[in-house]
Design a binder for these strands. Structure first.
Length: 680
RNA sequence: GCGCCCGUAGCUCAGUUGGAUAGAGCGAACGGCUACGAACCGUUAGGUCGGGAGUUCGAAUCUCUCCGGGCGCACCA
């Protein structure tokens, strides 16, 4: 509702400016005033116009306020400070609109969206870093779906790379296991943990004797070729570990629709199709000399020189045009060795970026090839997750061929991502390149204290650093399932002490909901560009700015209804007649009502916040909003004992307040993938 | 060396497209349970927004520069 009224205000003001001053502004800046006493929207536009109209800002603001006339839903406009225009809403009608959940329709783009996230190498257990990726990705999927988009969720599986090869080497050459023994192990409950340890051991084994690296190369080669023991073992391992990853993520309510695997990208010759187009389009060129001799290379992402090869530099008072030497080397085949990225190696094999280019051409339906599809995993709720295969079943959902893509991949890979975008652009697919978003986020690292707690010995240098990077290769990290287990155990202890009257099963369900709430909130409260220095103490906290804090607020709201003997779901049906607009006006205007109004206003902002979160690919806004709503509600809860209210009419108004806040809180939490427990 | 990111309270972080008095949480000190259950609420202390220069009516936010930290820059993925 908040979002809708803002658009209405913006449109109206723009029209007024065009009419009155002949100014054509596409959009105007609308802010949120620091306090509700100053209205619901603030516009500093008079400051901007001051110069163009050559008048004092305050005078312009006064003219605008006097001239704009009535806007539906708005009570008044006022000039404040040196020239702010503050807009005040009609609180009664606004409250009615919020209560009945009025949703003015907004345009939803047509095409399908593809979100790729998780993409964990299937050779070891998932760790905290993977959790951040999956939680960010899943929340973004929920955001898009909430706003009406059709979304496919994909999890790319690199089942033929060195990481899987290393574990194969571990099983076959260090442990000397037979395929049957490995298959047996793969059926064990936490096979991914076994691989975690083995993977670290293999890395060590390579260091012990460099000759061992020869086996890695050979194994990698065998896996890529297929039809041999190493490839068969790699398949057993990667499929088993992948299943474990799906189980782990399912504990957090994270599901996927399709799992494209690198093995099919190879076997179905996606690269061959892409290679032809890239050569024909002049994106790739063959290097005849230097260190990349014999390779097909392209310009590394992000190194392209500016289109206007000139830079304007202001030096004191003199404007100087400085031509860059790039005028000379804009030609693709003269990209310096430094800026070259090898796509096809001199032995003819294609590297990761090349496969990724082909995969992304497929995503946009530009490859004229498709995967085969098989059902791979059925979630407890009945949803099917599909996997790529050389020959699939004829009847399957249509994946790929989408209008927009988001790749949730950490910031370390931004150069590779830019290279893929550049390749699309180089082929002339500008529209697709414009709808390609690298959803970039920073890694999760461990604080030195956390590392010590886990039993790792740190060098003196490391112990002084703010954080230390997780390393699967070294087996250094916090495993996702371990973290969840600890969170659940900790939540369970709290629930046990607070609710001994509940059954074992009920307490278990609540503990899981709280643990998941805490974890998902923790991963979402930081903005993407912030490195999370992971610490058990903070992650295991259930107080303050945490998921359980927000869950608790929602539970409190539910408790009020329970005590009142009212079902919120029943109330929802005839909520329109519960409190009249006149009554809302009575209780939301006048002195000392700003705190109540602030709560209503916060409750009206969900769709506004969702829009912001999508436009900026920043789910942290959602977490902030959930917390603010919960915080305002908790203050309300203390200040207004709803059920003790003697005035029946006012009591209904307070109940409507609780109803609306509860609904919005649950809505926001659900977009974050957080459930609200029955009791806490 | 080149590229990207970060530097805000003791600690961990917010701060939308430049805007009104820079905000939370944790931690610290004190206070609040007659239960709509305190996983909560209140009060207090705590800031030269890394330093400097510039643009602007206005800068934590934009530009430049310096300092400090992180991450990239494989015929790995």
């Amino acid at each position: 509702m908040y979002r809708h009224l803002q658009h209405r205000l913006s449109d109206h003001i723009c029209k007024f400016l065009r009419r009155t001053y002949d100014l054509d502004l596409a959009d105007i800046v609308i802010e949120q005033p620091p306090r509700v006493e100053l209205g619901e929207y603030a516009m500093p536009l008079a400051f901007d116009l001051a110069k163009r109209l050559r008048k004092a800002p305050r005078k312009i603001a006064e003219e605008i306020v006097a001239g704009i006339g009535e806007i539906d839903g708005y009570e008044k406009f006022a000039v404040a400070g040196a020239g702010y225009i503050n807009a005040y809403l009609k609180r009664g009608p606004m409250a009615t609109a919020i209560t009945i959940d009025e949703k003015p329709q907004s345009k939803v783009p047509d095409g399908k969206v593809l979100v790729e996230h998780s993409s964990i190498n299937p050779n070891k257990a998932a760790h905290v870093g993977h959790l951040r990726n999956a939680i960010l990705g899943d929340t973004f999927v929920r955001l898009l779906r909430f706003s009406g988009r059709r979304v496919d969720v994909q999890n790319y599986i690199d089942n033929t790379g060195v990481q899987v090869a290393d574990v194969v080497v571990g099983f076959l050459h260090i442990q000397k296991k037979s395929r049957e023994e490995i298959e047996q192990l793969a059926r064990e409950p936490r096979f991914d943990y076994y691989c975690w340890d083995l993977y670290a051991r293999v890395s060590q084994w390579y260091q012990e004797d460099k000759a061992n690296l020869q086996l890695r190369l050979q194994t990698l080669h065998d896996i890529e070729h297929g039809g041999n023991e190493s490839a068969a073992v790699a398949d057993v391992i990667s499929v088993a570990v992948l299943k474990r990853h799906l189980e782990t993520m399912d504990r957090l309510d994270i599901e996927y629709d399709f799992l494209p695997r690198e093995s099919e990208i190879l076997k179905l010759h996606f690269w061959d199709a892409a290679f032809e187009k890239l050569k024909a389009g002049g994106v790739l060129f063959f290097e005849n000399e230097g260190k990349n001799k014999g390779c097909w290379v392209m310009r590394r992402g992000g190194t392209a020189k500016s289109e206007h090869a000139d830079a304007i530099r202001k030096d004191e008072d003199i404007l100087t045009i400085v031509p860059l030497k790039s005028e000379v080397d804009v030609r693709l085949d003269e990209v310096s060795e430094e800026d070259q990225k090898v796509i096809v190696r001199s032995n003819g094999t294609v590297g990761y970026v090349g496969k990724d280019i082909a995969y992304h051409m497929w995503k946009f339906g530009l490859l004229s090839r498709d995967f085969g599809y098989l059902k791979f995993y059925r979630y407890p709720n009945g949803h099917d997750c599909w996997i790529s295969s050389t020959d699939g079943v004829p009847d399957h959902p249509h994946f790929g061929d989408v209008a927009e893509i988001y790749n949730v991949i950490d910031a370390r890979q931004s150069e590779a991502q830019n290279t893929v975008v550049d390749a699309l652009r180089g082929l002339g697919y500008n529209d697709q390149a414009d709808h390609y978003t690298h959803f970039s986020y920073e890694m999760v690292a461990l604080t030195p204290r956390c590392a010590t707690e886990l039993g790792y010995e740190l060098s003196e240098e490391d112990s002084k650093r703010p954080y230390i990077e997780v390393s699967g290769r070294k087996g250094f990290g916090v495993k996702a399932d371990d973290l969840l287990d600890r969170l659940i155990a900790s939540a369970r202890a709290e629930v046990d002490s607070r609710h001994p009257e509940l059954s074992d099963e009920e307490r278990s369900t609540i503990a899981i909901q709280i643990a998941v709430g805490a974890l998902r909130y923790f991963m979402l409260k930081f903005t993407k560009q912030s490195v999370i220095a992971f610490d058990f103490k903070e992650a295991l906290s259930f107080e303050g700015e945490t998921g359980p804090y927000a869950q608790y607020a929602a539970v409190r709201a539910t408790n009020i209804f329970r005590k009142a003997g009212i079902e919120p779901e029943t109330l929802e049906k005839d909520v329109a007649s519960y409190v009249s607009t006149g009554e809302f006006d009575k209780y939301l205007n006048g002195s000392d009502t700003d705190d109540l109004w602030a709560l209503w206003l916060a409750a009206s902002k969900t769709s506004y916040v969702v829009d912001q979160a999508i436009a900026t690919t920043e789910p942290a806004y959602l977490a902030k909003h959930a917390f603010q709503l919960a915080q305002l509600f908790n203050v309300f809860y203390h200040r207004y004992p709803v059920l003790a209210e003697l005035d029946e009419e006012r009591k209904k108004f307070l109940l409507a307040t609780v109803f609306v806040v509860r609904r919005e809180l649950m809505r926001v939490l659900s977009v974050m993938g957080i459930a609200v427990p029955a009791v806490m």
